[in-house]
Amino acid sequence: MMRAYLVAVALFALALSLTSASDPSPLQDFCVALEEKDYSKSAVFVNGKFCKDPEQVKAEDFFFEGLNIPGNTENMQGSNVTAVNVEKIAGLNTLGISLARIDFAPYGQNPPHTHPRGTEILVVVEGCLHVGFVTSNLENRLFTKVLNKGDVFVFPVGLIHFQLNVGKTNAIAIAALSSQNAGVITIADAVFGADPPINPDVLTKAFQLDKNVVEHLQKLFGY
Rank of each mutant, 00 (worst) to 15 (best):
residue 3 R to G: 02
residue 4 A to C: 10
residue 6 L to T: 12
residue 11 L to S: 11
residue 16 L to H: 13
residue 16 L to T: 11
residue 18 L to W: 09
residue 19 T to P: 01
residue 20 S to Q: 15
residue 21 A to I: 00
residue 23 D to G: 08
residue 24 P to H: 08
residue 25 S to Y: 13
residue 25 S to L: 08
residue 27 L to D: 15
residue 34 L to G: 00
residue 37 K to Q: 13
residue 38 D to R: 07
residue 38 D to Q: 13
residue 43 A to E: 09
residue 44 V to S: 13
residue 44 V to I: 15
residue 45 F to H: 15
residue 47 N to T: 04
residue 50 F to R: 05
residue 52 K to P: 01
residue 54 P to G: 09
residue 54 P to Q: 09
residue 54 P to S: 07
residue 57 V to G: 07
residue 67 L to G: 10
residue 71 G to C: 03
residue 71 G to R: 07
residue 71 G to H: 03
residue 76 M to P: 02
residue 77 Q to H: 14
residue 77 Q to N: 14
residue 78 G to N: 07
residue 80 N to I: 00
residue 85 N to V: 06
residue 92 L to G: 03
residue 93 N to Q: 08
residue 94 T to C: 06
residue 95 L to V: 03
residue 97 I to N: 05
residue 100 A to G: 10
residue 101 R to Q: 13
residue 101 R to I: 12
residue 104 F to L: 10
residue 106 P to R: 11
residue 106 P to Y: 12
residue 107 Y to P: 00
residue 110 N to S: 12
residue 115 H to M: 12
residue 117 R to Y: 06
residue 120 E to I: 00
residue 121 I to A: 14
residue 123 V to A: 14
residue 126 E to I: 08
residue 128 C to F: 03
residue 128 C to V: 12
residue 128 C to M: 10
residue 129 L to M: 10
residue 132 G to R: 06
residue 138 L to M: 13
residue 141 R to Y: 13
residue 146 V to C: 03
residue 147 L to F: 01
residue 149 K to D: 12
residue 151 D to E: 15
residue 157 V to K: 15
residue 158 G to P: 03
residue 160 I to P: 05
residue 165 N to H: 04
residue 168 K to N: 13
residue 170 N to I: 00
residue 173 A to P: 06
residue 175 A to Y: 00
residue 177 L to C: 00
residue 179 S to F: 04
residue 182 A to W: 03
residue 183 G to V: 06
residue 186 T to F: 12
residue 188 A to R: 02
residue 190 A to P: 06
residue 191 V to H: 04
residue 192 F to N: 04
residue 192 F to I: 02
residue 193 G to P: 06
residue 199 N to A: 08
residue 200 P to I: 09
residue 200 P to F: 10
residue 206 A to F: 08
residue 207 F to Q: 03
residue 207 F to I: 00
residue 209 L to S: 04
residue 210 D to K: 14
residue 212 N to F: 04
residue 214 V to D: 03
residue 215 E to C: 07
residue 217 L to A: 08
residue 218 Q to M: 14
residue 219 K to Q: 13
residue 219 K to I: 00
